[in-house]
Simulated assay, not measured.
Amino acid sequence: MAAKLALARMTHTVERTFDKVRRGPARDDPIIDCYGGYTTATQIIIRGRVLAKARAISAEGPQSIWRNFTDFLNLFYTDELRDVVITTTDGQARTVTDEEGFFFLTLDATAPNIPQIVEIQAEGAAETHHVPILSSHDASFGVISDIDDTLLRTGAFSLLRNLWTSSTGNVHTREIFPDAIKLLQQFAEHDACFFYVSSSPWNLYDYLQAIFLRTGVPRGPFFLRDLGISDTQFITGTHGDHKTDAIEKVLLANPYLAFTLVGDTGQHDPHIYADIVVRHAGRINQVILRRPSDADLPDEVTKDIARIRDAGTPVHLDFDYRKLLDDVAVE
């Protein structure tokens, strides 16, 4: 542990020094890379990041693997701006970006007085940013879904396949499973609200949003991961820690809702979901899991599924969600 802490502090110092040299005074017109807003029982929460220059998602359709690869790398080459003041244009709320450029802005708001749009601005920026607010107050239940190999074909259970698929595809070619679209749209028809949890970095937010928009996945706030380096941690927490923390935030933000958890058996979803089910008795209506391959389920996955069922929560498990449409609860 001491060695990891020392490595984190050393790497953090090097990164900060490099950033000072590389960035210089590039703060004339900061760009807000906004991740949208969502509601809690009493607040609106807006998240985002401030950058020195905008990043673009390719508007072209099929293109070469090399072009896809370089476009993907460019999503990670960012100049983040720290200590930038972010305010709502009406002056109701204010915050400051952290050392990685991230900000977290909260506004007091309760139903039915939830605006559809909130305008925010970065200090020194020429333009205001219009943030769509995704409210869960009128939903009849909630859906928390994993992304990789649950909705988006990735091969996340294989590191090499995951890297190849992610870096050589683009927003026009990446595949959302048709059965996942059908499942989520069925939930949407019954007034569900949606939350998407992934260990993918925030650099991929616009990339993922474009894929979801193209394929008709219902809108919902994303909970992605900061891969930055701090003075106390090298990179960030584990895959399981991040997902667990994100799900806990969603449950806390929506104490009046019960939830469906959607995931797959290829990574750690069954274990994470089993812990959530046990810890939050009565909050989880059902768990839906995709089997990404026909390989036998590992013993630990089988045990986690049993834990969920022993807690009284139904588990639906199959290779294709369409086979489950008549069985899953829609409330």
Rank of each mutant, 00 (worst) to 15 (best):
A139I: 10
W202E: 06
V250R: 11
T95F: 01
E300D: 14
K303P: 00
A59P: 00
L105V: 09
H12S: 12
F222Q: 09
P292Y: 05
F76N: 06
Q267C: 05
A192K: 11
T313N: 13
I305T: 05
D98P: 03
R309N: 15
D19A: 07
I147Q: 11
R307G: 03
L5S: 11
G155D: 07
Q116P: 00
V330Y: 12
P132T: 06
A126R: 14
P270S: 09
D28H: 09
R290L: 07
A2E: 12
T97W: 02
D19E: 07
R47T: 14
Y38T: 14
P30A: 11
R225I: 02
K20Y: 01
K20V: 03
A246R: 12
A246C: 13
S58Y: 01
H280M: 04
F69W: 13
R214I: 01
E15Q: 14
G61V: 02
G169Q: 15
S200M: 01
L208K: 06
V217M: 07
D269W: 03
D241M: 13
H137K: 13
A188L: 07
E60Q: 13
F102N: 11
D149Y: 04
T302W: 02
F104T: 02
A59E: 14
F187E: 03
H130W: 00
E248P: 00
L257S: 06
R22T: 04
P255A: 11
L184I: 04
D179K: 12
A295Q: 15
I120P: 02
R322M: 04
D108T: 14
R279W: 00
P221I: 08
P221F: 08
V315L: 09
Q121W: 00
